[in-house]
Simulated assay, not measured.
Amino acid sequence: MNLFLADSLNISIQLLFAVLIVVSLLLLGVVLMQRPKQEGLGAAFGAAITDQAFGARTTDVLKKATVYFGSAFMLLCLVLAMLINRQHVKSSESLLSPEMQEAAAKQEASVPVKTPEELQQEELRRRAAEAEAAAASETPVSGTPEAPAPETPPAPQQ
């Protein structure tokens, strides 16, 4: 059953992609057939030919066709994105067997989560250990022994 769903999902994605290509080509043709407002580059390619070929109300029909094909293009893109996402999720789920999924869930549950207080205490202990190590390294260690303090001379004998 799952294999059938995967195949039907693949087939529907491919069919919708083919329809998307056809709609985008139709949208491109409809936009190029429209008469430009400033008669710029479109006039050089004979934009008046559409009026002669299809009649005077061609611009209204082309505007409506542009809206319909543009809406169909956006809708098809949205549906394809959702289907491809579903296909990706299903393929990533099927990579793991149910036993492996249960083991991964148990492993995630067994990992202890430290609270912010525990993390703060750990940071304080680490800083205290660093401070003790720094204090121990600050004691002067020299290769020559220090000279003893001078003694007071003995009192003269009488």
Rank of each mutant, 00 (worst) to 15 (best):
E130G: 04
R125S: 07
E146I: 08
T144Y: 14
A147H: 11
A128R: 06
A147W: 00
A133W: 00
S137F: 00
E122C: 00
E122H: 05
V113K: 15
L119H: 09
T144S: 15
P112R: 15
A133Q: 02
V141G: 06
E123R: 10
E138F: 07
T139S: 07
P145M: 11
P112H: 12
E146L: 13
A134E: 06
T139H: 09
V111H: 07
K114A: 15
A109F: 11
P116G: 07
E108G: 04
L124E: 13
E138R: 12
E132C: 07
P112G: 09
E117C: 02
E132G: 00
Q120P: 00
Q120W: 01
V111R: 13
A135K: 08
Q107E: 10
A133C: 00
V141L: 10
P145W: 13
Q120F: 03
V113W: 09
A109N: 14
E130C: 01
V141K: 10
T115P: 11
A133P: 01
L124K: 14
A128K: 04
A133S: 06
E117D: 05
G143M: 15
A131Y: 02
S137A: 12
E146S: 07
E130N: 07
G143E: 15
E118I: 09
R127Q: 13
E108C: 06
T144N: 12
A136M: 08
P112K: 14
P112A: 09
A147F: 09
P116W: 03
Q120K: 07
E123L: 07
A131K: 10
S137L: 08
S137V: 02
E146P: 01
P140D: 11
E146H: 11
E123V: 04
G143Q: 14
A135V: 05
T139D: 06
A109W: 12
G143Y: 15
R125Q: 13
P145C: 12
E138W: 01
A133N: 08
A133G: 05
E146W: 03
E130K: 08
A134T: 00
A129W: 09
R126C: 02
A131N: 05
T144Q: 15
S110K: 13
V113G: 02
A134K: 03
A135F: 10
A128W: 10
G143N: 15
E123F: 04
L119P: 01
P112I: 14
A135P: 03
A131H: 02
Q107H: 03
S110M: 14
